[in-house]
């Protein structure tokens, strides 16, 4: 189901300004957050269609440049999802991610990008409802903030 949502996206981008829908790019770790998203879909939990998912093997694989690049390419927000601390499939990947994302947050603040445009969340494979809540909440915040422009 999660994949279907993504596949529908292009048509929805045609929406008029009044119905503007943010682009929320999500890097989800294969073992937890992606499975959590899958559960949300399989359980027919509706969540905002602004999300675009990129599956990564581990949240520790998310290079900070991938986040800056997302903003540079016009994402309105970026979500990084990983396993809860202690649950990483590779033991310490999410710790590495946590440290890096602390630097990303600092640098985004320096560059003047609103704090709410970037979020790091631990979502396990059983937390479909948390995935739903996070996506909906963040999409709502992005709607309030409006489009991000770096042109």
């Amino acid at each position: 189901m999660a994949e279907q949502q993504v596949a529908e996206a292009p048509a929805e981008q045609q929406a008029t300004a009044a119905e503007w829908r943010p682009t929320l790019l999500a890097y989800l770790c294969n073992w937890c957050s992606y499975a959590g998203a899958n559960l949300a879909g399989a359980s027919r939990m509706p969540y905002d269609a602004s999300i675009r998912v990129i599956r990564v093997p581990c949240s520790g694989r998310v290079d900070p440049l991938m986040i800056y690049k997302a903003f540079e390419r016009g994402a309105d927000g970026v979500l990084v999802g990983g396993c809860h601390l202690g649950d990483c499939h590779y033991s310490e990947g999410n710790y590495a991610c946590q440290g890096r994302m602390a630097l990303v947050k600092a640098l985004l603040a320096a560059a003047g990008i609103e704090e709410k445009r970037f979020r790091l969340e631990w979502i396990s494979a059983s937390e479909g409802s948390i995935f739903q809540a996070v996506v909906n909440e963040m999409s709502e915040q992005l709607r309030e903030l409006g489009p991000f422009e770096l042109k």
Binding site: E92, Y95, A96, Q98, G99, R100, L103, A106, L107, A110
Partner: peptide, 30 residues
């Protein structure tokens, strides 16, 4: 700006001692 962030979050200042670990090493759980 980044020095302040790493100094505050990780108590890390580059090159101030020979024994110092790299910043990225401090991200590990251990």
């Amino acid at each position: 700006w980044m020095e302040r962030a790493t100094n505050q979050a990780f108590d890390h200042l580059a090159g101030m001692s020979e024994q110092q670990k790299q910043l990225a090493a401090l991200f590990r759980k251990s």
